[in-house]
């Protein structure tokens, strides 16, 4: 059951990325190009997503428990450490170079563009390395 629900949620998330244009790196890079071919569309993606999530989370979190898990697991930290600056800085540089963040990269796998096939294994290797390094330091 959980597998089917997660599959459906992944499809819904992916359709959102496609319909919104966020799955297209050219559109992402134009959004980031304030001084050139600026395309403000992605501000609307973020706006739409955040407004729906803002309202929806508040409705959902009135419940005592989620439907398929014993409890809600929300991040509880509020400190801003070096990792929270270094990580997003590296991520943002990579995002600006390739136009892919993780979600859109997965939606691009099926079209199998050479750039995508180079990006995804590298991204997974980077994720693995970050987890391994974090484990070692913990």
């Amino acid at each position: 059951m959980s597998i089917l629900v997660n599959l459906g949620l992944g499809v819904l998330f992916g359709l959102g990325l496609i319909v919104s244009g966020m799955s297209n790196p050219a559109k992402v890079l134009n959004f980031l190009d304030l001084a050139g071919t600026f395309d403000p569309s992605l501000a609307f993606v973020m706006g739409g997503a955040v407004v729906v999530a803002f309202i929806g989370f508040r409705l959902v979190l009135r419940r005592d428990t989620p439907l398929m898990a014993p409890r809600f697991q929300l991040p509880t930290r509020s400190d801003i450490d070096a990792r929270l600056i270094v990580g997003p800085a590296l991520f943002g540089i990579g995002w600006g170079l390739g136009g892919f963040c993780p979600g859109p990269a997965f939606t691009a796998l099926g079209l199998a563009a050479p750039g995508t096939l180079a990006f995804i294994p590298a991204m997974l290797a980077g994720m693995w390395a970050a987890r391994a390094l974090a484990e070692r330091r913990a």
Binding site: S2, V5, N6, L9, G10, L12, F13, L15, G16, L17, I18, V19, S20, G21, M22, N24, A26, K27, N30, T37, D39, P40, S41, L42, F44, V45, M46, G47, G48, A49, V50, V51, V52, A53, G56, F57, L59, V60, L61, R63, T65, P66, L67, M68, A69, R71, F72, Q73
Partner: peptide
């Protein structure tokens, strides 16, 4: 690339909906 405010807003809402349903189903 074309400026697509409506498609982007709707697509964004679908992303938000997926996140809300994930919270509802899995609490994550």
């Amino acid at each position: 690339t074309d400026f697509t405010p409506f498609a982007s807003l709707i697509g964004g809402a679908l992303i938000g909906l997926s996140a809300v349903l994930m919270m509802l189903a899995e609490g994550r």
